[in-house]
């Protein structure tokens, strides 16, 4: 993949020297990553390597023990998911984080409902907006009145994606977005990622799948045992290099 991202300016988001520990275990150990506008950065690593924990610090689900987050070069305080949303950081969680008993539009607008002048929730307006965005993301989506528990895996995924995209995200975190999807739907997600990066959105993509990452990402950061092994341009490394980083924690040998 041709690398045409301008990395001379200020990064969209920068996480510096982040540490998170749970009862003496260093889940994230002095990790720094950054992300530029229009860029897709893959986060790779085994289960328990700390990638989800690192990213949950950015989305406000966890608090870092030390380290700083900078958004547009300014120091950002993210104490909870509401703060993250204020910085236009949106997350698609691996579990999707949908309330199964509510319908698609209630989930899409959860925490950010459209209200009438009297302060009541405006279901009709929210459903109309949901129809609009789903028409773009997943034109086959029809089940607007059913609770999301009645939807298929792909349909649920598209609700979760719609929720992240609808509110003008600038920084998008995708935690295993294709893990539960079939080939058709995976392709849809890939196309969506290309579309979003054109709009200048920065994306963190967490994945197990090296091929996903090689196809979709500009750079890749590999973690092992809570530490950052390294960050490489995808164009500079081979699959084997990345496998070596994931399994052995070994940086690829450079020519010259």
């Amino acid at each position: 993949m041709a690398d045409n991202i301008d990395r001379s300016g200020t990064p969209l988001v920068e996480m510096r020297d982040i540490c998170v520990s749970f009862g003496g275990i260093h889940a994230v150990d002095h990790v720094s990553v950054d992300l530029y506008p229009g860029e897709v950065v893959g986060l790779l690593g085994h289960n328990g390597a700390g990638k989800s924990t690192l990213i949950k610090v950015l989305s406000g689900a966890y608090q870092a023990d030390s380290g700083d987050i900078y958004v547009d070069g300014e120091r950002a305080t993210i104490a909870n998911p509401r703060d993250a949303r204020k910085y236009n950081i949106e997350t698609i969680y691996q579990t999707l984080a949908l309330a199964d008993n509510l319908d698609a539009s209630s989930n899409l607008f959860l925490g950010r409902e459209i209200t009438t002048p009297l302060g009541f929730v405006n279901d009709a307006a929210m459903e109309a907006e949901t129809r609009k965005i789903m028409g773009r993301l997943n034109p086959n989506f029809r089940k607007f009145a059913d609770p999301v528990s009645a939807l298929s895996g792909g349909q649920r995924q598209s609700v979760a994606i719609a929720r992240a995209v609808y509110f003008n995200a600038r920084i998008l975190i995708m935690d295993e977005p294709t893990a539960a999807l079939g080939p058709q739907e995976t392709k849809m997600v890939a196309e969506l990622i290309q579309e979003l990066r054109k709009d200048g959105i920065g994306i963190f993509l967490i994945s197990h799948d090296i091929h996903d990452v090689m196809d979709l990402c500009d750079r890749v950061s590999v973690m092992k045992n809570g530490e950052l092994v390294g960050t490489e341009l995808v164009g500079d490394v081979t699959d084997d290099d990345i496998l070596g980083m994931i399994i052995l924690g070994k940086k690829p040998a450079r020519a010259a």
Binding site: T95, A99, N107
Partner: peptide, 13 residues
């Protein structure tokens, strides 16, 4: 929402 999925509600702010 909280009754349906407490974690999702929390993550939705």
């Amino acid at each position: 929402a909280t009754g349906g999925n407490p974690d999702a509600a929390e993550l939705s702010g």
